[in-house]
Design a protein around this nucleic acid. Structure first.
Lengths: 385, 385
DNA sequence: AAAACTTTGTTTATCCGATAGACAAATAGA
DNA sequence: TCTATTTGTCTATCGGATAAACAAAGTTTT
């Protein structure tokens, strides 16, 4: 609420740490230029960060006519975080260092099962991950878990329709078993945070991450922070209506975006088109690779609908960047062109020219990494105090 | 960027000033409880604020068993701000005190004219307002102006389609004439800021203001601050598509929200329904008052479409509060029921129960007051430094 | 009415952060 | 080797917050 000197110090220390995180091999002098802090302040705080093992001195820069500067590096091996991405038919877990780089990963397929079975499998995966953490000053700094559903601010899963989970106190249940901090997030928010933190050096402060998987959700980064709304239910854009009286959605209403632009929509439509059942998205992509015109046209349509929804997002948020992730990235080469053409045709030039729309480069790993990143951020805020 | 002691002091001083602004007749002790600051800090900063004429001591509270506490009041008469709301056929100007209360207002009708004519009339209105400012310590703290169009962060009007203004350096032009600070904002943003600041004691940190006038726009408050996107073009929700291949919008595309839910849409539809031309919204309301069933049904439909768009906003933002303002408030009693029923039918209970949807109580004055409020906020941040 | 207690607000001494400027260290070029 | 230059540290000082003593102004108890 109010301010005091300790908070100010913490703020500056974090500022310096972030600077070093983003620009490896930066010198103390560079930090002075970037932050506007004075010599002595930077020297003091840098030395404290070294004492805390959060950064390292790593060799010296070439001289520019005087004493050589020492290079500073973020010590990404000071601790490790666990990230788990719960999918409809898989559990994907990672161990990442403090820079979000994966040092171990494991994926387990799971077929529609009761929550109890799911939970047991999750716990055993976490134990597996814990055993892969190397010795280091801070050990396991925490666990982040991403769920395709609505999560409230207390870490409770209110509704995850595709998993058929309802009202589960997931955070509390995990905290009873594990000693480290735990953060439960929505799948799209985790993806958004990973993209924001680990690509393009955080240049875009207003970023949207479009998770197009079985369902469709949006992760919203505003002013460099995740926006979760009043109770954590924001970004449910899969259920915004863009075609009144259109196709019926799984939610029972008509014309939702998700009913037109999602893996679920693609599979359902494809089953009608080519008269096959229990298709997968991978199969559809393969059919398209084999020049199946019906499937190629289907992907173009999906691209069109994703594009229309994105124009709505652009008119709402005027974002710097929109990143498309989750399973639909597998069909990137068949949806991308239609998608971009649709956006260009439906936005003002002033809007279109200032936004970049890209597919995620982190691919399937984004969500687990993002989940872990929430915990890494919490750790960094706590430790540099 | 970085922090220092002066910034910290400024922050605390502003915190105290806001506390006094929001809770009149608060005592020093109450401020200590609310902010967590310590006795001496509050005493020092309060005395500085008194010296700067920003607050006043106003009598004493009854005793509760010891020395009586002195009541503190925000000195809303320390300075005055000018607010101007540019409409399609009117210019509305106000002089407000630092609390945003109108002490003088003037409205001038203007018929579709070239920008030069508009500009002259605006200048003469501003001179009229300036003459109504009473003598006070800080004089005129600035001018805020709201425009129904797209404004960039430099105060340039990029496009105001209903005024037919394009690429006008409005802020620069006004600064050449007047000496005080000037802030140009979008109409919906101004409305949002007025509602946020002057109603309900700023309890809702995530608030949307829906401006339903000739066109339709949204002002977005996130974490207590106005959100304007990357270049100031956010909230153009009038042109989000909610009915693919539906009605043609003034922007040339099909199915925009604005084509269904705006004064323009209502008038166009009414002309077909009752075979009259050059109708006004006031006339339609009167027809409805006279039990014209066709018009009443039309308003119900408008309410339905506003409601559908609001459900999309709720799924996107999960806001605490949505306030509907601008000219459509005149038809509140005919659109409200259909609107609320549509929202309830199309949202999850978890979403619906945590959002309040209301009509603006500031009515037509909100936009001008909000425009002035941006300037008042700037003044308060500058002065308490 | 005097004494004791309570509440409110001010003053004083101290603490802790940032910071200016002196100083030390390390290097290139003359 | 000497000088200029750059980098990094040390020291004295400044400006905030704050704890604790103090003063002021009331109520309650005796």
């Amino acid at each position: 609420m109010s301010w005091n000197q300790q908070l100010g110090k913490k703020f500056n220390k974090e500022l310096i740490l972030k600077e070093i995180f983003l620009h490896s091999d930066i010198s103390r002098g560079d930090i002075i230029k970037e932050t506007g802090l004075k010599k002595a302040t930077v020297a003091n705080l840098v030395n404290e960060l070294i004492d805390e093992n959060l950064i390292l001195e790593s060799g010296e820069e070439a001289s520019t006519g005087g004493r050589r500067s020492k290079k500073l590096k973020f010590n990404e091996k000071a601790g490790f975080a666990l990230g788990v991405d719960i999918g409809v038919n898989y559990i994907y877990g990672v161990v990442v260092n403090l820079r979000g780089e994966i040092i171990f990963e494991d994926v387990q397929t799971i077929h529609s099962a009761a929550f109890e079975t799911y939970f047991e499998r999750i716990i055993s995966l976490i134990h597996l991950l814990m055993n892969k953490v190397p010795p280091c000053p801070y050990q396991i700094v925490g666990l982040g878990m991403a769920i395709p559903g609505i999560i409230d601010t207390g870490g409770n899963v209110l509704d995850a329709p595709n998993l058929q989970w309802k009202n589960i106190e997931l955070k509390r249940m995990l905290e009873e078993i594990f000693q480290f901090p735990i953060y439960i997030s929505n799948e799209a928010n985790a993806g958004a945070y990973a993209e924001f933190t680990f690509t393009q050096n955080k240049e875009a402060n207003n970023l949207l991450y479009l998770s197009v998987g079985i369902g469709l959700g949006v992760g919203i980064i505003i002013n460099g922070k995740i926006y979760q709304g009043n109770n954590g239910y924001s970004g449910e854009n899969g259920h915004t209506i863009l075609n009144l009286n259109g196709k019926t959605c799984t939610c029972g209403r008509k014309g939702c975006w998700e009913a037109y632009a999602s893996e679920h929509a693609a599979l359902k439509e494809a089953e009608n088109l080519i008269n096959e059942t229990s298709l997968t998205l991978e199969q559809l992509v393969q059919y398209a690779d084999e020049n199946n015109e019906k499937i190629r046209k289907l992907f173009q349509e999906i691209g069109f609908y994703i594009g229309i929804g994105i124009t709505n997002l652009i008119h709402t948020f005027n974002p710097e960047k929109i990143i498309i992730g989750n399973s639909m990235t597998k069909a990137q080469r068949y949806v991308e062109l239609a998608l971009l053409e649709t956006i260009e045709a439906n936005t003002y030039p002033a809007h279109f020219e200032t936004v970049s729309v890209e597919f995620s480069s982190l691919r399937g790993q984004a969500i687990a990494i993002g989940a872990a990143t929430f915990i890494i951020d919490q750790f960094i805020e706590l430790s540099s105090s």
